[in-house]
Design a protein around this nucleic acid. Sequence first.
RNA 1: CGGGGCGUGGCGCAGCUUGGCUUAGCGCGCUUGCUUGGGGUGCAAGAGGUCAGCGGUUCAAAUCCGCUCGCCCCGACCA
Length: 574
Amino acid sequence: MKWSETLIPTLKEDPSEAEVSSHKLMVRAGMIRKLLSGAYSYLPLGTRVLNKVMAIVREEMNRAGAVEVYLPVLQPVELLEESGRVDVFGQDLIRFQDRHGRLMALGPTHEEVITYLVRNEINSYKQLPITFYQIQVKFRDEARPRFGVLRSKEFLMKDAYSFDVDEEGLSRSYEKMYHAYCRIFQRCGLDYIPVEADTGVMGGEVSHEFMVPSEIGEDYLVRCKGCSYSVNRERAEPAPLPPERDGQSALGGVQAVSTPKVTTIAQVSSFLGVTPKNMVKTLIYKAGGEAVAVLIRGDHEVNEARLARVLGQGVSLADAETIFNLTGAPVGFTGPVGLPIRVIADQAVSVLQNCVTGANKADTHLINVNPGRDFQINNVYNIRYVTQGDRCPRCGEELIISHGIEVGHVFKLGTKYSEAFNARFLDPQGRLRPILMGCYGIGINRIIAALIECSHDEGGIIWPPNIAPYKALVLPLNVKDKTAFQTALKVHDELEGAGIDTLLDDRDQRPGVKFKDADLIGIPFRVVLGRRFEEAGEVEVQCRQGGEKSFVTSQGVVAEIKRLLEKFRGLSHG
RNA sequence: CGGGGCGUGGCGCAGCUUGGCUUAGCGCGCUUGCUUGGGGUGCAAGAGGUCAGCGGUUCAAAUCCGCUCGCCCCGACCA
């Protein structure tokens, strides 16, 4: 392809709206342009990368035995009502009425649609197992689209759904997808980490997220320095903390102190001169109809997903009025002493001594409060988020917390949707049984953004050959030099002929402009025809990554690039 | 959805505080001609703007006031 015959509008300056490098670079390299907040047009270069990623995904899905389908974007809202997910998606669901007044939604995902299909089409064990997949656009009306293509309202997703007769079958299907995902991310050149994950909105029991470590990631991953423990933040469970001191000798007597208008942990901490580690936050949650007190150390945060899990139901923070009615004090002065409701404590609270709590009285806190002596704990659980310094629950080594970009997620759903939709099959004994489901998602756009986030330098993007928009860029420095230009054309054609997709920069621009653009759009291998070609008939082949250069004759370019591709493949990104 | 910021040719910005010396300016990009040819060449001539929209104040509004819309950031939210 000639540069002059496609559209690659590169920019010298960063777009003002972009914050993160992947977003800046995708815009500057002429890959994308914003249409509206959370929706981007892909220009030719961006589209080529999308297609390359999708081709890899298709190959690996097919290799894993999944079969491709194409489900409608348009979904009747009733379908999502059947599974109870209209409320789950809430505002994120894009809804409207068609001309007949029927409520429609733009698919945020497709569990319902596929299960509806399967309920009607699959009714025998002979048709199982089977895994369907599609690559298709999804819509979620994100409250706050961010980071360009990383979190948008409209995005491409590869979603797959497996259907099995029993748990073992489901596990086999799950494993297959898991391994296919590993191959996909590896082929895309991503350094990814699979982590155990919470199942969240999807329901089900087992789940893994595929994370790409990155400062800008909106998710957290928790890994152990010593063993293979790696989980996401919701799922992470710190090792229990040891008791602060032993014996009862050091226990002081409870004392009320006046703390006028001092409500937050930070304020109380500096007002009383105590560390947040020695304070207890008392949060009133509503779980079902019941109010419960949840105790958490001052420097910790409640993991609501875990709390909901241990309580077996959804939870939400109580409002100020409820708190006042229960405790007799405004928000900010709640404490466990004398509270007439169920008290749940995080493990870290249960080992505290002489701590500070609210007094259930306005403008007052209590000091020297001790669990067990001054108040009873009904249940002790691990309900806090892991913090820096926490230890691994498996081996006791230190845990590392870092940010990550979620590029894929796999779930064992079990029978959640098949039961909701009555998707059942007849087993060999003629019994009707629910189908076991798994679902598996990959964010196509996110793969691209995550890759750029991890693979760029000051000059621009550094593509791995597998997903680069073109593998090679032929760069005649002076297009008015007829011989050089003709040779460049020939080299381009030969590369294309050898199956190496190639871009020819045929623009009448200064060398500096061409080099800068070449670096920006990040094509892995660059073939330069310049002074050296005029003088000695040699062309220069250079790698974007590492900058390694070699000089060959124009006839030797194809072989040289094939050699470099081989070498690259051998290195890491098979 | 709460808090903050911004909106001026395709892109990045100045001008707004203190309304009128602006026929709205600068850099990049774009067009034409010449020049140059290994890291964003130089010169010259040009094209391109309802100053987000609506309403108000005023002799006079990009500039002051109000409303609306859009965009970005922080938070809440989020396969």
